[in-house]
Design a protein around this nucleic acid. Structure first.
Length: 609
RNA sequence: CGGGAUGUGGCGCAGCUUGGUAGCGCACUUCGUUCGGGACGAAGGGGCCGCAGGUUCGAAUCCUGUCAUCCCGACCA
């Protein structure tokens, strides 16, 4: 391929819209253009990268025995109503693009395909004799993200590989899950990525066990907490740790004593004013939970004063507490004084709340459920004696005890965010370290959530019908491409790993005016292609410096410079990533590159997709 | 949706405070000189100043509204 025919337009300046290196470089290198917020045109160079990643994904998925398929992006609402996810995915902060067709039927653009695949499974899978079976597809997904970000990192339209497995029992699901785990590790390693597998929250997809694969990079959106020995790693949303022990509260009197605390509405103010430690206090947070079905509920969360609330864990706890009858949890937001007023309720002593806040405060609420949903983190529930709000303005209680406070006791759950520096649960001698990661893959054991909802059953060996066991497995293909750039770049530009580079070699003719150089460049290009390599020939009549800069920017792993030595058939070979240069005979360079590159491809032969 | 910022040739920006001929660098075209790390000179083409109202003799500039994009939070591959 000739650069002059490549429609290559590189930019000298960073586009103002890009913030992180990979986004800037993909725009500057002429790999993509933004069409709308979170929507990108993949230009020819990027499409080659995406195709190579897809080819690796295909090989590894096929090796697990999964079958490639292609499901519709346009999906009927009725299917999503059957799984109970239509509301959650379209109302409130739902992310599904949806529309109404000329027959007034509601449709959505697939953000994921559990519904479609499960309906197909219900239709096609009848007997345990057909199981297990796995299907996958590589396809464009649509998600109306609340905030698209960083180019391909969080797009509203993006390429994803999603796979679904079906099993007769849970043990078999675990086997495939483990096989997918191994396949994923091979995929990322073949793409040249350093990844870490972390325990993850299952989120809206649901199900039990799940694991994310993170490309470690400073620009990552997720915080990973891991032990130094690498045996424990989890997304902060999910991570657990041993909290520091609370500082004991010395309290001579068995009765709680009132403390005048004017204007001390935060834990910091309270502790500073009275010489207390945050771990001696219990703070109370009020949130409003809106579910698809039923009244909004006020959630009263008790946390030890030094702990941070983990919104993901709280959302899971609330969902579990309200039960399936309430449908999907649509929204969980802190309550404001205005909201309390607009419910027609008298003012609450915000800032001085205690865990024993009575349900009578909710009586007469216009739309809210008349009782608090009471939850407490274990660190708070374990305190024998503590400081908390007195539920009266400017007043706290010192020496409060759960049994003495009276009122309804909260359900105890893990609601706190693990923090870097805390001790690991499985090995208290180690402490959690923080790093950032880009989530490029996520695997789930879904269990029977979707098969039950969509009545996807099979007949087991005993002749009885039962719901299928399911797993699902995603890779963000377009995100992976950008994550690779985030991990492999320098001041000059991208340094693609050979396995996913758009081209493997670029032959740069230093002077397009010199017929000897031009001829040698052409010859080399042809020979390298005949050797089975993917070769770019920079035949433009630019000055050498411009071509070198562009070659570095677009990040082709190997550069062959045909220049001054052309008359004596000498060329220069430069490795992009290391910058290592060597002079050699033009004849020798073909064999050398063939050997090096074929090895670096990791078994992916040309055109093997 | 809340908070912050920005919209001026393809890209990066100045001009706006104090209203009066729309500018600079890069890119593009032509010519000449140059030619191994984003050359130099000359000539040239390209802009509804995001959009819509308003104020004014006159608006890129002032006012109102609106749209879009980016950043910080909730969502996720």
């Amino acid at each position: 391929m000739r650069v002059s025919r490549l429609m290559l337009v590189t930019l000298r300046d960073d586009p103002a819209e890009a913030e992180i290196p990979s986004h800037k470089l993909l725009l500057r290198g002429g790999y993509m253009r933004r069409v709308a917020s979170g929507v990108y045109a993949y230009l020819p160079l990027l499409w080659r990268v995406l195709s190579k990643i897809s080819a690796i994904v295909r090989q590894e998925m096929n090796a697990t025995g999964a079958l490639e398929t292609l499901l519709p992006a346009l999906q009927p609402a009725s299917l999503w109503e059957r799984s109970g996810r239509w509301q959650g995915y379209t109302a409130g902060e739902g992310i599904m693009f949806h529309l109404v067709d000329r027959q007034e039927r509601s449709l959505g653009l697939g953000p994921t395909h559990e519904e479609v695949i499960t309906a197909l499974a219900a239709d096609l899978l009848r007997s345990y004799r057909q199981l297990p079976v796995s299907l996958y597809q590589i396809q464009t997904k649509f998600r109306d993200e609340i905030r698209p970000r960083f180019g391909l990192m969080r797009g509203r339209e993006f390429i994803m590989k999603d796979a679904y497995s079906f099993h007769a029992d849970e043990a078999d699901l675990r086997l495939t899950y483990a096989r997918m785990d191994q396949a994923y590790r091979r995929i990322f390693s073949r793409c040249g990525l350093r990844t870490v597998a972390v325990e993850a929250d299952s989120g809206a997809i649901g199900g039990s066990a799940s694991q994310e694969f993170m490309v470690t990079a400073a620009a990552g959106e997720d915080l990973i907490l891991s032990s130094a020995d690498g045996r424990y790693a989890a997304n902060q949303e999910r991570a657990c740790s041993l909290p520091e022990p609370a500082v004991p509260l010395v309290c001579p009197s068995p009765e709680a004593v009132e403390l005048h605390t004017p204007g001390q509405h935060s834990i910091e103010d309270l502790c500073a004013a009275h010489g207390l430690e945050p771990s001696q206090t219990v703070k109370v947070l009020l949130l409003l939970a809106r579910c698809a079905i039923g009244q909004a509920r006020v959630v009263l969360v008790s946390l030890r004063g030094d702990q941070q609330l983990n919104p993901t864990k709280l959302a899971n706890a609330v969902s579990a507490a309200v039960g399936e009858g309430a449908g999907a949890l649509l929204e969980l937001e802190p309550i404001s004084a205005e909201q309390i007023r607009s419910e027609g309720l008298p003012e609450w002593p915000l800032g001085c709340l205690g865990p024993h806040l009575g349900d009578e405060l909710l009586s007469g609420a216009r739309s809210w459920h008349p009782a608090f949903l009471r939850l407490a983190d274990a660190t708070a529930a374990e305190l024998d004696v503590f400081v908390c709000g007195a539920n009266r303005p400017d007043t706290h209680l010192v020496g409060a005890r759960w049994e003495a406070l009276g009122g309804a006791r909260p359900s105890v759950a893990d609601l706190r965010s693990a923090q870097p520096g805390e001790r690991c649960l499985q090995d208290p001698t180690q402490r959690l370290e923080a790093s950032r990661g880009i989530e490029v893959g996520h695997i789930f054991q879904l269990g029977r959530k979707y098969s039950q909802a969509l009545e996807a059953t099979f007949t087991n060996e005993q002749g009885l019908d039962e719901p299928l066991w399911m797993g699902c497995y995603g890779i963000g293909v377009s995100r992976l491409a950008q994550a690779a750039v985030e991990q492999h770049h320098d001041q000059q530009g991208i340094c693609w790993p050979v396995a996913i580079a758009p081209f493997e070699v670029i032959v740069v003719v230093a002077s397009a005016q010199d017929p000897v150089q031009v001829a040698l460049g052409e010859t080399l290009h042809d020979k390298l292609e005949q050797a089975g390599l993917e070769v770019l020939l920079d035949d433009r009549s630019e000055r050498a410096g411009v071509k070198f800069k562009d070659a570095d920017l677009i990040g082709i792993p190997w550069r062959v410079v045909v220049g001054r030595g052309a008359a004596s058939a000498q060329v220069e070979l430069v490795e992009r990533a290391s910058g290592a240069k060597s002079e050699m005979a033009a004849d020798a360079v073909v064999a050398q590159l063939q050997q090096t590159i074929l090895a670096a491809r990791g078994g992916l032969a040309l055109g093997s997709s």
